[in-house]
Nucleic acid binder design. Structure first.
Lengths: 142, 142
DNA sequence: GAAATCAGTGGGTGATTACCAACTATTGGG
DNA sequence: CCCAATAGTTGGTAATCACCCACTGATTTC
């Protein structure tokens, strides 16, 4: 596919293409190898990185609508990866915790993610990967 | 929004977020300032970079389905930005050409794109922008 | 000159994403 | 004690994207 120079010269355009392709590869391998969706992986990672939290808190961190969080969490409960208990201090909130199975799934998912990451960044040297990461982090504001 | 380190440490994740945000900003400003969609801009740029071409050829370059190309081109015709003539050498094909208005719209669009590009890449120095562009180009295969 | 191929067209589908409105229950401030 | 705000839930909608199939008219291949 010979794209026009005008588009190839636009960093935003190429950045978007590469980002979408990377995400698709990641999502495909993640569901194939662990059965997790990207959002499920993100939620598990959030719970592991920050510890048990209310549903709303996880949703806020990930920028996910509360109503979508419900459905996401329903899935995690059904698969036995997390537990949902009412917070005794504030019975409106849940306290979502990872189960042992959840931590296990997360570990496997991390390995898959690292694997796909290596593949999609294969054209770059280690130094270039670090450069790329620091550059996109500078652009990442919200 | 304090995202979990696991996600922030994943280049693909940050790359995708930045790419999508950039594309959204680009699309919004483009339609606001010129009335063009991103695809319309891409099609105009393709026609300008490579000269008049068949509808199918433009679609192939952009990776767009033929049936979607029809609808895209219909829009460009309706706005008077391109003309559609049968190729006398092969009357199955069209010969799509830019009109003067089309070239004009493209010039204005280019300026908007350069403008938005400057804004979204503002956190980077000129050298860093060049680095970023060459890095993502290395990752851009198809 | 019949058959296979190709450009363009019309009319869809299904997945994804990202929302929104309205409701329950619980809580905290005044 | 009452009222506003909050956490969670249900049941949607709208936009976008990336397809797919069947068809027409024109061309190439055999």
């Amino acid at each position: 596919m010979e794209l026009p120079p005008t588009l190839l010269g636009t960093t935003t355009f190429v950045l978007h293409k590469v980002g979408v392709a990377g995400r698709r590869a990641l999502a495909a391998r993640l569901t194939a190898d662990t059965g997790l969706s990207l959002w499920e992986f993100a939620a598990l990672a959030t719970l592991d990185d920050f510890g048990p939290a209310a549903q709303r808190e996880v949703g806020d961190r990930l920028g996910l609508d509360p109503s979508d969080m419900v459905r996401l969490m329903d899935g995690l409960m059904a698969e036995g990866l997390a537990t949902r208990e009412r917070d005794p201090a504030d019975r409106r909130r849940y306290r979502i915790s990872l189960t042992a199975a959840g931590r296990d799934a997360l570990e496997r998912a991390r390995a898959v993610v690292a694997d796909v990451e290596r593949e999609t960044l294969a054209p770059l040297t280690d130094a270039e990967r670090r450069d790329l990461h620091s550059l996109v982090m500078k652009l990442f504001s919200p």
